[in-house]
C-alpha cells in the first residue's frame, strides 16, 4: 500500500502518530505530518488505516498496491 499526506492542510493533531508511530511523525518546525515511509508494510496496514480514518482534516490518502 501507498500513503500520501497533504502537508499544506495538516494542522498537527497528531492522531496519525498516535495510531501508527512507525509510519508517521510530526515536524519539529510546525507539527505537521512527516511520512517515515510512503509504502507501509502489510503488517502496518491496520494501524495506517486507523490513522487515515482518525485524521481530523482528511489529510492522508491510502491507495492499495495495484495487483502485480
Amino acid at each position: 500500500m501507498r500513503v500520501t499526506a497533504d502537508r499544506d492542510r495538516c494542522l498537527g493533531a497528531g492522531q496519525c502518530v498516535l495510531h501508527a508511530p512507525d509510519v508517521f511523525d510530526q515536524s519539529d518546525e510546525d507539527g505537521t505530518v512527516v511520512l517515515l515511509t510512503g509504502t507501509p508494510s502489510e503488517a502496518q496496514g491496520e494501524s495506517v488505516r486507523t490513522a487515515v480514518r482518525m485524521c481530523p482534516n482528511a489529510v492522508l490518502t491510502l491507495t492499495d498496491d495495484p495487483p502485480s
Binding site: G14, Q26, G31
Partner: peptide, 8 residues
C-alpha cells in the same frame, strides 16, 4: 504552537 504539543 503545534510543535510544543506533538504526540511524541
Amino acid at each position: 504552537l503545534t510543535p510544543y504539543f506533538t504526540t511524541r
